[in-house]
């Protein structure tokens, strides 16, 4: 059987650090969601059963904070990597491979919408990260900051009410809850659907876990990157099996 499989040319799309961070964020996000909502909906039986199984609301609260710190450490890792990339590797932050939004993304977005509405015949030649992939990343990255800030207010209310009026704690509670719903809806439904439930990758897009992408997939989903790779004539297939 093994001889019949076609060995595809593979390319490395995600570094080990990116894979590790994604995996950590994935589990910590599930954990923080479960513990958070079991506290927010503490009047409901399933939430109480879950909290009981973890040893009471105190430990749910503790685990929620452990997951929160883990998630934020991932953010810190990304920032440290960014500094390392910029200053030690002398990388280009706004180049075609970047996760940062550029003006090109706006144009691609317009063209992409045109393609979806059948006004154009071809999708735009997406680079390494398409606009929705960047959106996926930045919603979480920015969301972490606001969730972190409101979360800190709720974690240390006595400390923060030295500087801000008391109703900020209530505000933080409302915002923390509302954004939690937003984040969970976005990550568990939109992100999961867009990344893993599309027909061409169903039941899951393993690229983020294996770090490898195939030539065919790259040509189809990231034609801009593929063209650039060929143009620079540095086709070094890495990590082929």
């Amino acid at each position: 059987m093994a001889n019949q499989t076609i060995r595809q040319e593979t390319f490395r799309r995600f570094s080990v650090l990116q894979r590790a961070v994604h995996l950590t964020v994935m589990f910590a996000f599930i954990g923080i969601g479960l513990t958070g909502f079991s506290m927010a909906f503490s009047s409901m039986a399933p939430a109480r059963a879950f909290a009981w199984s973890l040893g009471g609301v105190e430990s749910v609260r503790y685990l929620h904070r452990v997951f929160a710190v883990t998630l934020y450490l991932c953010v810190v890792t990304e920032v440290v990597w960014l500094i390392y990339f910029k200053f030690l590797l002398k990388g280009n932050l706004f180049g075609p491979h970047s996760i940062f939004f550029t003006k090109q993304d706006l144009l691609y977005f317009r063209d992409h919408m045109g393609y979806i509405l059948a006004l154009r015949n071809e999708p735009p030649p997406f680079e390494r990260f398409a606009w929705w992939e960047k959106l996926d990343y930045w919603t979480l990255f920015i969301g972490m900051q606001t969730m972190g800030l409101t979360g800190l207010l709720l974690w240390f209310p006595e400390f923060f009410s030295r500087f801000v009026p008391g109703y900020f704690i209530n505000l933080a509670q409302v915002l923390h809850f509302d954004e939690a719903i937003l984040a969970v809806l976005y990550k568990f439904f939109i992100h999961t659907t867009v990344r893993h439930f599309r027909p061409e990758v169903y039941p899951g897009d393993w690229t983020i876990f294996t770090g490898k992408t195939t030539k065919e997939k790259m040509m189809r989903t990231h034609p801009g990157e593929w063209a650039r790779l060929n143009a620079s004539a540095q086709i070094v297939p890495r990590g082929e099996r």
Binding site: R12, S15, R19, A20, L88, F209, G211, G239
Partner: peptide, 17 residues
């Protein structure tokens, strides 16, 4: 060293999974 680390971690990752 950056490249060595990259290659080494790649090996570890691919062994674990």
């Amino acid at each position: 060293v950056h490249r060595k680390f990259q290659l080494g971690s790649e090996v570890v990752w691919s062994k674990i999974f």
